[in-house]
Design a protein around this nucleic acid. Structure first.
Lengths: 341, 341
DNA sequence: TCGTTTAGCTAAATTGTTTTAGTTTTAAAG
DNA sequence: CTTTAAAACTAAAACAATTTAGCTAAACGA
């Protein structure tokens, strides 16, 4: 697999100049380094002619920069992550950065391994949807002055940039919406995960329930076995709590799976049981009857994430002052009784 | 942003050995290179103690290998691509490879740029969902002995590995299904793209129409303006062809967008107009009434793609004999009149 | 005892770039 | 006709690994 790509050395030899000169010119430092306009022009013309492009590995070895961002998500197959990935990739690309991505599937060991692998590959910055227990690894990244931005959820014990949404408020509003429609028995279907975004959503639910003096109905689906357990646990939950007149799903996959169950059980929505989903997506947009959903501002999140990372990357070191931003989410009303927003 | 990572040099100095010895041991060549067991053990213990990990950039510079695969899709935000990405990533990871991905958004110039960027970064192999007009660039990759696997669609003018599905058969079956249900006016909603997978789907449709002596109803949505045009063009198409009693959507985004339109127009499905979609996904799975859909065997495709690429990577050069595989797709019957499969 | 093997290790080149610390040439100043 | 300064360029080190070719010392055989 011999590749005889042209190198700076080849150019300098062909033109009777030094590597230094070529490098300066190629990096736009010709004027600064007092390379004459004629020489610069000659080099540029030749470079274009032979179609030279720099070897990023060699450059990265010297500069310590690779113009690569490591992007760690829970699962790229999840529409929430793939959509934000699409937006982040686009913005990174526009700023000269490439993305290496990987999925943790919620496993901390894999996340640790991925971070180390990314480090060995010299990625310049990290965008991470952290798993529980990733504190030490991320703290170390910061100590090594590697820019990191967390998103979707954060790690309470460590100080770092974070972009997410105001989960508590969003869930509160979602449940408030149900309560305002006269629902008295609002259930929350969530996971057993201790991730901050899930805890906040839980808090939002509890807050509304307390304020309205309603009864709590919470079903925790074990995250690791969500595929197998959702259906059985949810069916049992519905059977054991026949008074439930409305349900909030705390994530998109719970909503999709849950709606599938409700449909198969022929539960009348929204008349018998009203539904609100956290995280909007294609499936919910098409679902009939209309499912009111919490929409995350993906574009805005992606922009904030990239901007913050680029800021630190440009600064050349990790900012002492961490940026912690929770964007408001938007409740999209889709109940058949309401006007579509 | 000074990082003082430990290097082989540090280890050799600390242990009074040479870089060569350390490198041999770390690469499992100790026996082959006749390094004594004691020394090997001592080195390994020290390496573990100080937590050394190799610099992939330096290694890549010397070996020309980076254990990285470049993955070029149309748009990672599209569920088809994000799901296959998830599967490919997992399998690549299990084989010690990382993925760098990027989206072309169907633009050839961007695809060319991406391929070159990947090359400059020294990716070992390429998995590409090609845009039209990418022939020269891919031919060149092959000439440079860089392993390439195309998927979803191929480029008829060049010889290269390709994994996809038998689009013509799949579309034929989908339309046959409608015809067998007594539909006489079957329409196809597709794009104006000349990509092979789209042309094959078109052929499948035309074949069935011809065989059954039916009338053709085809709507071509311009790919570049699909977002804006789908609704207006589709509505007009329906108005101009009131006899249509069934519709095949040729891609997932056309199906989702089209169903949205049909719903807003309050078209009775499947009684008034039956629908079949190409490419199954969450949204269709949840849609009511059940939408019969062509499901692509994603796992199998991902496995074939990775296996083929790894084969070439292990071989160390591009295989002369190209692998061209079209997997059968599966029609998932979901019409309310049928049993769910 | 001398030559040959073999075990056990290493010096140094190599990869392609960036960058520091120059050197040489030319022009201006005194 | 020096000295000084600026202009235009370059030699060589550095980055962190891999790898080729070879070196030294001990063991072995005749």
């Amino acid at each position: 697999m011999k590749r005889n790509r042209i190198s700076i050395k080849d150019i300098s030899k062909a033109l009777g100049l030094s590597n230094t000169t070529i490098s300066f010119i190629l990096n736009g430092k010709a004027e600064e380094m007092r390379i004459s306009a004629q020489v610069a022009e000659r080099v540029l013309a030749y470079v274009k002619e032979v179609g030279y492009t720099p070897n990023y590995l060699a450059r990265g070895l010297v500069t310590g920069k690779t113009n690569t961002i490591g992007f760690i998500v829970e699962n790229i197959g999840n529409p929430f992550f793939s959509q934000i990935a699409s937006l982040i990739e686009e913005q990174a690309y526009n700023n000269g950065y490439k993305i290496i991505y990987s999925s943790t599937n919620g496993q901390t060991e894999k996340a640790v391994e991925l971070i180390r692998m990314f480090r060995d590959r010299g990625v310049d910055g990290y965008i991470i949807c952290p798993t529980e227990g990733l504190e030490d690894e991320i703290k170390q990244l910061r100590e090594e002055n590697r820019p990191v931005v967390l998103f979707d959820r954060y790690l309470p014990m460590i100080d770092s940039h974070y972009i997410g949404i105001s989960n508590e408020d969003a869930m509160y509003e979602a449940c408030e919406h149900l309560a305002n429609k006269g629902k008295k028995h609002i259930a929350l279907i969530t996971t057993d995960s201790q991730q901050t975004q899930m805890l906040s959503r839980l808090e939002g639910y509890k807050k509304l329930i307390k304020e309205r003096k309603l009864e709590e109905y919470i079903l925790y689906i074990p995250y690791k076995e969500r595929k197998e357990r959702l259906q059985s646990d949810f069916e049992e939950f519905l059977k054991n709590n026949p008074t439930i007149d409305s349900i909030c799903f705390a994530t998109n996959y719970l909503a999709v799976g849950g709606l599938e169950v409700m449909r198969s059980k022929k539960i009348k929505m929204p008349t018998k049981v009203a539904v609100v989903a956290f995280d909007d997506n294609e499936a919910l947009r098409l679902f009939q009857p209309g499912i009111t959903a919490v929409e995350q501002p993906l574009e805005e999140m992606a922009k904030l994430i990239i901007d913050r990372l680029l800021l630190d990357l440009k600064l050349g070191k990790v900012n002492d002052k961490t940026f912690h931003k929770e964007l408001p989410a938007r409740l999209i009303l889709r109940d058949s009784t309401e006007k579509l927003v």
